[in-house]
Write a protein that binds this DNA or RNA. Structure first.
Lengths: 230, 230
DNA sequence: CGTTGAGTTGAGGGATATCAAGCTGCGTGG
DNA sequence: CCACGCAGCTTGATATCCCTCAACTCAACG
């Protein structure tokens, strides 16, 4: 979308085949700008797009959650971000995806529109253009924060930051329902599942959180979490 | 610049005073779009803008280099990126800076324009709007790569990635002149100066690089560096 | 009741941080 | 021209945080 229109689209990278028998749904961009998109549903672990594929579609999540990640040659994985209902994903600076996206939950439902359609819209509609700019700017900000977390925070500080981020994204007050498993959390925080587990257990011992189940976390002491995350 | 124009500008955050007696210089944005900007010069370590300040200017580097960074309450610093001549910095998703910028070299020269001016331009000129979008998209991509490096790479892999990045940014073939000191490199790579030094010494012993001086590095074996960085 | 996958816990090891000392280059002043 | 001081850099010894490997628990499911 950021490429010069003439250069948009690519023949050298594989395209993702759109599953047949998918229904059409409205993709609301900004006030007054709606596009007809394709509705698709994925089960847990299914790929929405893959690293190196042609980035010719943009997606909005209707329900469920998605992980966006990179994998290195030796299998080490870094999750870049988790996306939730309402979020847009698949935006790329180039015409090729530089990461992969997979559904985290069963029945994750998304609407997809063509990148070329979006490009046409932002080339004519100023408000849509500003909306996309704000969107990408927010993603950039998220990535900068993520880099700070990965570069200069200890395990407990990363965990605290993650929990606070999840509370914020879920617009919850103090109870988080984690849609992702421990290995997803570990690969987001640059840790191992064992360290994630140990850190959460320690938080529980310290009375900072309560874990009725492994996916359900109540934040009991936000102040401590905030000062840890700083 | 990504905020709704009505909300742009902020009264709650300190503004940076523009040094007097600074000359006016053209700020070239895209083909056909030039703005009159203010030329400023900084010595090594001087602040261009600070975390929390009002983000009401956008800067292009004429000469020298700049580090953009965050500092945590306990002094731990994470450098987000290094900027070189031709690069634009100071773009923010919000109206407030979320990081600080300092000159790395003496006589670092920049041109600054008002954020509001840029906002007016991209609200009317489609090409300028697309240019800024591409710019922010590239920054986002850089940050994503940085997060991968910080989250899932060992010291030697980070160092290799850094050297290759510097070669690319300086448009050089195999010799890098580092404008930044070891502690800047360490804070960019999420390491300590000792580890940076040890890693470089080990690279030299292995014949991967040569270091005529601490700031001058010749890359002797690009293949090894590339496979390390993966 | 066995199986399976996710999560937890424990023991030991390794990569990098920390602390400390020494080196190098360079400007400054005698 | 050389001694001095200083900041940046390197090197060594030790500490520590987190990873690795392994065993175990638990819940879901047939």
């Amino acid at each position: 979308m950021f490429s010069i229109p003439v250069l948009a689209g690519c023949r050298t990278h594989p395209r993702r085949r759109i599953p047949p028998s998918q229904s059409q749904t409205a993709f609301h961009l900004t006030s007054g700008v709606d596009v007809t998109g394709i509705r698709m549903t994925y089960n847990c672990g299914e790929e929405i797009y893959g690293d190196g594929e042609c980035a010719d579609m943009v997606y909005r999540i209707i329900s469920g959650s998605v992980r966006c990640f990179n994998i290195r040659y030796d299998g080490r994985r870094q999750i870049e971000y988790f996306y939730f209902p309402g979020d847009i994903l698949g935006l790329e600076a180039r015409t090729v995806h530089h990461s992969s996206a997979e559904a985290i939950c069963d029945k994750t439902s998304i609407v997809a529109i063509w990148r070329s359609t979006l490009e046409e819209i932002i080339a004519t509609d100023v408000r849509a253009s500003q909306y996309v700019l704000r969107l990408v700017g927010q993603e950039w900000q998220n990535s900068r924060y993520h880099a700070l977390l990965l570069g200069r925070k200890h395990a407990a500080e990363r965990m605290a930051g993650f929990l606070l981020e999840m509370v914020r994204l879920q617009a919850a007050i103090s109870t988080v329902t984690l849609p992702m498993c421990r290995s997803d959390i570990a690969d987001y925080l640059g840790l191992t599942i064992e360290t994630v587990s140990r850190t959460l257990t320690q938080f529980e011992r310290d009375g900072i959180i309560a874990m009725p189940s492994s996916r359900l976390i109540r934040l009991l002491n936000m102040d401590v979490l905030r000062s840890l995350s700083a």
